[in-house]
Design a protein around this nucleic acid. Structure first.
Lengths: 232, 232
DNA sequence: TTGTGTTGTTAACGACTTGTTAATGCGTGT
DNA sequence: ACACGCATTAACAAGTCGTTAACAACACAA
């Protein structure tokens, strides 16, 4: 039942502290990758899948905030905890703006850190469950909404975000008339001629994706919208 | 007999609280979708049919009030409960103005929340069915006005929007004389020779659709209009 | 009965909507 | 700068439906 060891990316230029932390955290059951500056840490981040980032704010090459911003461009949900010497307020705010999950101020107690890590860790499986893979059954297909893919006969087809949103929208409104107008308002936020045409293009694409199952059809209701014929 | 699990849309940026609530509410028998800001919540709302909204007032991207207003443009009856840190009176009033059903002030007890949810839930079912498709019984036929289709013997015939409007009009005026003139004014907005002829064409079509049930007839009243003979 | 206007019915027309594929353009990452 | 992926726009084909047309059947009054 217990998950494999969680991987922590530790960016800390003070090697004394760094090694101390690595030792401590590894005995506590984590895998830790120590990087001695921001750039190396970013490189490591790109090369590997971590579960948590522990970033010193002041580092050579690239500071912790910049690093966090880079990390956030790739991953919106990985927990980030900053290590900072000063407890300056503006620093904290800047960090939260970047989606920091917590803070720890040097000098600190190892247990205190562990506590924060565990607090943050607790949400990982759940955050993934916020991203809880929404699995939707559509006829013979399995539609993994969060991962944006359609599975049939063991074959997986990755679809785009918009396609995904539209298919999800349709799936939740099966067997009843969906007005074009509402659809456009809900999915695009507005309704003009070209967006309507764009919708038609998406419908064509989705029809193609779904054509393996003859029980599924997206029927047009002339001048009104569509009906997604599909068993519940 | 028992209904399926009710779906709750939870908009809460504080993930600690959010996850806590998700856990709690799920063990209490609800399905919960957690969104960490207002925009994501709105998107989720559009994509899915929820039974209740639990909205934090202060959130990034879009605050709870704005979100509620957006939600209300689509759904006038879905219950909304606000979560707010401060118990400011004006906030409450603002919220109730937007059709809030209840309020809960942080920090709060989980049971207290559950209580409020259940209180609000209790009024859902009847209203909800009102929201649903309009089903009209016409002799042996079932006329699904919102989905524009006529059902008889398990066979479903989809009809056009105008046919639908006319049939609906007739159904609401059974067994009494309906003047051509009024009909044209009500359904077309004007009354000229050609529209009158057009109406005749529609009457022919609808007679065909309804001919499976001999108890139904659209009788002409010469120079005046029609009578839709049909049991109430 | 005859004449005039009304209604029934079918088919053809034409405006408009939708299906489909290809081209364009925009943003992102390299 | 470049390529790549994707949404949008363009362009044209195909389809739908309300209207109009055309003619037949009918109702009523003279």
């Amino acid at each position: 039942m217990h998950k494999e060891r969680l991987k922590i990316l530790l960016a800390e230029d003070d090697l004394n502290l760094g090694i101390l932390l690595v030792d401590y955290l590894e005995t506590e059951g984590f895998d830790v990758k120590l990087c001695k500056d921001g750039e190396l840490a970013l490189k490591a981040f790109h090369g590997y899948q971590f579960d948590l980032c522990l970033l010193d704010v002041m580092m050579p090459k690239m500071d912790g905030f910049t690093l966090a911003k880079e990390i956030r461009t790739k991953d919106k949900i990985i927990p980030v905890i900053f290590i900072t010497a000063k407890s300056l307020k503006e620093d904290k705010l800047k960090g939260y703006d970047l989606g920091a999950d917590d803070y720890i101020t040097k000098p600190f107690d190892e247990e205190e850190l562990l506590w924060k890590i565990k607090a943050v860790i607790r949400r990982i499986p759940e955050v993934k469950s916020d991203n809880k893979t929404e699995i939707i059954s559509i006829g013979k297909y399995i539609f993994d909404f969060t991962n944006q893919c359609l599975i049939i006969n063991g074959k997986t087809k990755r679809i785009t975000e918009r396609e995904s949103d539209i298919l999800n929208y349709l799936s939740n409104r099966r067997n009843r008339v969906i007005k074009r107008e509402e659809m456009l308002k809900d999915l695009w936020g507005e309704n003009d001629y070209f967006l309507g045409r764009s919708l038609d293009v998406f419908i064509t694409k989705i029809r193609k994706y779904l054509k393996e199952d003859p029980d599924l059809s997206i029927e047009n209701v002339f001048g009104v919208g569509f009906i997604f014929n599909a068993p519940k």
